[in-house]
């Protein structure tokens, strides 16, 4: 797991109060018992951690831990390209 992925997992772990060891990339958020409140806490926490805005339309479609990692990666990449001259 990359350092980037680990940072996302760490935020999810804190938000959902679950050990990082259970947050495998293929795990479904609902199967982990992660409800809407924990997802909101996680998304806002990730926005703070990575200084990005996660698009609401895509947040609504999140299903797995990997989806979350991919969403943050895309937002960070988009921020980087916007910052380019």
């Amino acid at each position: 797991m990359s350092r980037f992925d680990s940072r996302v997992i760490a935020v999810l772990s804190r938000s959902a109060m679950l050990p990082e060891s259970v947050l495998g990339p293929d795990k479904k958020l609902t199967d982990l018992g992660i409800g809407s409140l924990e997802q909101i806490e996680c998304v806002l926490g990730l926005e703070d951690e990575f200084q990005v805005e996660l698009p609401d339309a895509q947040v609504r479609r999140l299903k797995t831990v990997q989806d979350l990692i991919d969403l943050v990666k895309a937002a960070v990449a988009a921020r980087g390209s916007r910052a380019d001259p």
């Binding site: 809407s36 806002l44 947040v59 999140l62």
Partner: peptide, 17 residues
């Protein structure tokens, strides 16, 4: 009830929502 809303419409973090 909020969990049931989210099951139907998804999770939102937009201030307006």
């Amino acid at each position: 009830i909020q969990e049931r809303y989210s099951t139907k419409e998804g999770v939102t973090t937009a201030l307006v929502d």
